[in-house]
Each structure stands twice: as C-alpha cells, then as structure tokens.
Simulated assay, not measured.
Amino acid sequence: MFSFFGVNAITDMLVYFKWPIPPNMEYASVILALMCEYLLFMFHLHGRTDLDVLLHTLLLHAIAACMVAFALELKYPDSILCALRRAYFILLQGTWFWLIGWILYPPFEGSYRWDKDDHKQMMIATMIFTQWLYF
C-alpha cells in the first residue's frame, strides 16, 4: 500500500516539475493507490471481531468514496465541487482511520475500552461514522 502511495507521490512531483508524462497520470496513480488500499483492507477482515469488521467496512466505504471523487475530478477538472468533494472524502478517510485506532487500541491507560462483541457498541460506532459525515 505504501509503495503505491509512494509511486503517487513521485508522479505528483513529476507533474509539478512538468516532466513529459501522459496527461492525468496523477489521477490514475492516486486511484490505483486507493484501489490497492481498498483491496488490502477488504481482505484484512478475516478472523476479526464484529466491531473490528464494522469499523474497517466503514473505512472501505470512505476509501471507495475517495476513488469516486478522484474519478469525478478527473472527468471534470475545472469543477470546484469535485475538488471540494475530493478533499472532504480524503479528510473523512484519514480521520476515520485515526478514530479506528483510537477505538481498537485506546492510547491512554485507564481510558474507555470498547466491548468488541456488543451490538449496541457497534451501533454507536456506526452513529459516530454517520455523524462524522456531517462534521
């Protein structure tokens, strides 16, 4: 996953320094990196607790939204709405990634521990994600 995002970073630098590469290669490389991330997280769920699977599934939805947003920006490069949509979904993905870590691995000793098999806690996690959509 990191190597694909590294290729994306190199592609972005080549575009910035105006190297002769095919047009819209920066979009293709980031969509490829997001697709790789999506597949890795999709097959990362085997043998996990119910809460863990739910959190990672919600992350998959955020990654898919990022891929769609980049594809729309590729199709409509002058649209400010497409650029804002892309930025929004990247922020959603990153902050949800951070919250997954906070829920599954609490950073402080004595902090709240989630019950990873409780259905009510899974619904709370889903509610947090939906509220994060409107943040």
Results as ranks from 00 to 15, higher is better:
M35N: 15
A83S: 13
L55D: 00
I103R: 06
P106V: 10
M35F: 15
I128P: 05
C66V: 03
L40W: 10
A28K: 14
E109K: 09
M35P: 08
A83H: 07
R85Q: 14
I90A: 00
T11P: 06
H44E: 09
A62S: 13
V53E: 02
L34Y: 02
S79M: 04
Y76A: 11
Y88L: 14
L54I: 15
T49W: 05
W102G: 06
E26L: 05
T126K: 12
G94A: 09
R113K: 14
S79F: 04
L45M: 06
L55N: 02
N24L: 04
Y16C: 12
S29W: 03
I31Q: 05
A83D: 05
C36K: 03
W98M: 02
W96H: 03
Y16T: 15
G47P: 10
M127L: 14
V30M: 08
Y105A: 14
A62M: 07
L104N: 12
L45V: 01
L32D: 12
F108L: 15
L39W: 03
L60E: 01
Y88F: 15
E109H: 07
L99D: 04
G110V: 10
L40V: 09
H46D: 09
L54A: 13
G110S: 09
D52L: 11
L91R: 11
A87S: 12
L51G: 08
Q121W: 13
A62P: 05
F129E: 01
E109C: 05
R86P: 05
W102D: 10
P107T: 13
H46E: 11
M35Y: 14
A64P: 02
G110R: 09
G94W: 02
Y27P: 02
T95K: 07
M25D: 06
I124G: 04
G101D: 06
R48D: 10
V15E: 05
W96Y: 07
F17W: 11
E73P: 03
D52G: 15
L59I: 00
T49A: 11
C66D: 03
D12I: 02
M25Y: 07
E37I: 03
L84S: 07
Y16Q: 13
M25N: 04
M13S: 15
M25Q: 08
R113T: 14
F97T: 13
L14T: 06
L84K: 10
F97S: 14
S29P: 08
W98E: 04
L58S: 03
G47R: 08
P20W: 07
H56F: 12
A33K: 01
P77F: 05
A28W: 09
K120A: 15
L55E: 00
W102L: 12
T11C: 11
E26F: 04
W114Q: 08
H56R: 10
A65H: 00
A125K: 01
I10R: 04
H56Q: 11
Y88W: 15
I90C: 00
C36S: 08
V68P: 03
Y16E: 14
A69Q: 02
I21T: 06
A83M: 07
R113C: 12
G110I: 10
A69E: 01
L55T: 00
L14M: 11
I128N: 07
A28P: 02
C66N: 03
L81K: 06
I103P: 06
S111T: 15
